[in-house]
Design a binder for these strands. Structure first.
Lengths: 137, 137
DNA sequence: TTCCTTATCAACAATGTTTGCAAACTAGCT
DNA sequence: AGCTAGTTTGCAAACATTGTTGATAAGGAA
C-alpha cells in the first residue's frame, strides 16, 4: 500500500474525507506484514484512539480494498485478513495452529492444469495456499 | 467418500449410530460434485424428510469431515462448501459471480517456492484456488 | 476565519453462518 | 421388550460483518 501521506492525497482525490480515524488505520497498516484481522487493526488503533468504533475500522478497510491499496484475504481462519503488500504478487502460508499468515513467493510459470477448464471460464486470480504448522505449534 | 452402505459400516465401527437422517445426508452427498453448502444439503434432504433440522445436517457433515469422508472447504464464498471427492487430490476453481465450484487437477511437481519457508514450518497441504468468472456470469 | 455542504462517526440493531445446550427421542445391544 | 448411550430438535448464543441514523466534523469557498 501507499504511505499514509500518499493515501491522504488519494482519498481526497476520490472525494473521500481524511479523518483522524482513517489516518490511524493507515498508520496501523503501513509496513505491517502481520495480515491482521479487522479486530486486530481495531485493537491496535484503539490503543491511541479509544473512542474509535470497530464499524469505522471495517469501513476504512473496505475503502482501502476497493481502492486496491490492500488485499482482503479469506483463508478459512474464521475472519478476513488484510494484506498491505499489493506491490508484488505473492501467495500465503497459514499456520492451522495459531493463525499466523506469511507471504510466500512462488513460481507459477510451470504450472499445468491437466484437466480442461470449463469453456468460457476466465481466471482472474491464481492463488496458492500452504497450510501447516509453524515451529511453535 | 464411500457409498452410503459402506458409511453405515464405518459409522457403526466408530460407535456412531446410523439414523434415517444420517443416511439421507449420505445419499445427498454420494456422487455429488456440486460442492454444496450445509444449507444446500439441508434443502435437498428436507425434500424427502421435511422434519430434519439444519442442526443435524451440520452435525453429520462435521462427523463425515472428522472421519475424512468429505472435505470442508472455505473458499471465501460466505459459507463452507463440502466436497465428497476425497479419493483423488485436486484443486478448486471458484466463480466469483455465482459461487460455482469445480474440481481441477493440477500438476504441482514442478512448483518452486523461491522464498524460504519459515524454519520449522511443516506444510500439510498445498491448495490452489482459481478465481474468476464462469461463462454465464 | 467563518460558513456550508456533504461525508463520516459512533452506537445500536440486524444479518447470516455456525455452534452450544437441554429435553425428548431412538438405534442397537441384551 | 427394555435399557442406555448416542441423536435429534428447536432455540438461544457466538461470531463476523453490514445496515441505519442522528450527531459531528472535514474540506472547499467566501
Amino acid at each position: 500500500m501507499h504511505s499514509p501521506e500518499e493515501l491522504t492525497q488519494r482519498f481526497r482525490a476520490r472525494g473521500l474525507k481524511v479523518t483522524p480515524q482513517r489516518q490511524a488505520v493507515f498508520r496501523a497498516l503501513f509496513n505491517n506484514d502481520m495480515h491482521p484481522t479487522a479486530d486486530a487493526v481495531y485493537a491496535q488503533v484503539a490503543e491511541q484512539m479509544p473512542t474509535i468504533s470497530l464499524r469505522t475500522v471495517y469501513q476504512t478497510l473496505n475503502d482501502l480494498t476497493e481502492m486496491g491499496e490492500i488485499l482482503h484475504l479469506e483463508l478459512g481462519t474464521g475472519s478476513a485478513r488484510f494484506d498491505a503488500n499489493v506491490e508484488q504478487h505473492h501467495h500465503h502460508l497459514v499456520c492451522e495452529g495459531c493463525g499466523l499468515v506469511r507471504d510466500v513467493d512462488a513460481d507459477l510459470s510451470s504450472l499445468q492444469f491437466s484437466s480442461v477448464l470449463p469453456t468460457g471460464f476466465r481466471v482472474s486470480e491464481t492463488e496458492i495456499l500452504l497450510r501447516g504448522r509453524c515451529e511453535s505449534c
